Simulated assay, not measured.
Amino acid sequence: MSQICWLGPHDSFPNPLLGTDPDPSVPGLIAVSERIYPDQLLQAYQLGIFPWYSDEQPVLWWSPDPRMILKPENFKCSESLRKNIRLYCQDVQSELLVDADFGAVIRACATSSRKDQDGTWITHEIMDAYTTIHEQGHAHSIALVEQGELIGGLYCVALGGMVFGESMFSRKPNASKMALAALSAWCIQNQVAMIDCQQETAHLSSLGAAPISRDDFLQQLRISLNQSNIEIPWKFDKNILTHWL
């Protein structure tokens, strides 16, 4: 761990493009810090680095190799998911809300149990930092609402022409998949080349995500950050889901 730099609040991250992992025994771990600051968080995303840690740990900053990404056009929409989408779009009491209640979505992600990862990594400090960059227009939420109740959704970060997926949750079957289907359809419409999914899981693989090398990811990231095809504020509703029907 002594080889991994400890960042102060105004320190810059080491660039993953310019060197190997600081400590080969912890592949992908780029830096450590005591706190997480919104400006530092945005700098991290621009370098392809993200935070992932637990309450009892310092802030751990990662740039894994390989990197899991989803090309939006490769999203796998199963027949059962298409049926859910069709019913959802026909239901007059269902809504898809974008950036309507970011706090509710990130809290739901933090408290949802899941097979592939423990939601407890979304600490109070994480929620505060992402809420701040949401208020700055860089983080976004997609919420599925049925009869006034939040049933699923996701939150993500968007910079330039790049979208970084963060976390999803479901309170009804396929609700998080519908949120990802909506995000993927929106990315296709806005010529977003890939959605960063960070780490490989069987669930993400089943939805069409695939690993690429860190170098390939960082090269594509640099290109995407220089694009400006994403309009602010985000505006779309459940009709975007009809892309998959």
Rank of each mutant, 00 (worst) to 15 (best):
H124L: 07
A129D: 01
S25A: 09
Q40S: 12
A182I: 07
L245V: 12
C156G: 08
Q43K: 14
M162F: 13
D99L: 02
G208V: 14
G161F: 05
M68T: 02
H203I: 10
I85R: 08
S170P: 05
L150I: 09
R222H: 13
A104C: 10
S176M: 07
L81H: 11
I30R: 06
E79C: 15
W244K: 07
C89M: 15
G103H: 07
E73D: 08
E166H: 09
L47S: 02
F102Q: 08
H134P: 00
F164W: 15
L81K: 13
L97A: 04
T111W: 09
Y130P: 03
T242G: 09
S213Y: 00
D65E: 00
E231I: 15
P14Q: 02
L96T: 04
R214H: 06
S12G: 11
F169I: 07
P22T: 07
L17P: 00
I240N: 01
E149W: 04
M194A: 09
A129P: 02
S228E: 14
A100G: 04
P27M: 07
P14H: 01
G160W: 09
E149P: 01
E200S: 10
V59L: 10
S167I: 14
C89H: 10
R86S: 14
E34C: 09
S54M: 14
P16I: 04
M178N: 00
L60Y: 05
A110K: 11
S167Q: 05
I126D: 02
D11C: 13
D99Y: 04
E149D: 11
Q227N: 10
A182Q: 08
D196P: 07
A202L: 14
M1D: 15
F13Y: 04
Y88W: 13
T201C: 09
T132Y: 02
R35Y: 09
K115E: 12
E73L: 10
R114I: 12
I85K: 11
V26G: 06
V98M: 02
D65K: 02
V105L: 00
S167P: 05
Q189V: 12
K177I: 11
Q117C: 13
A158G: 06
Q220F: 04
E135T: 03
S141F: 07
E146D: 15
M162A: 14
I240G: 03
V98L: 10
I230P: 04
L180N: 01
D55S: 15
L245F: 01
Y45D: 12
I106L: 03
D116G: 06
L221W: 11
H243M: 05
L218N: 02
I36G: 13
A108E: 06
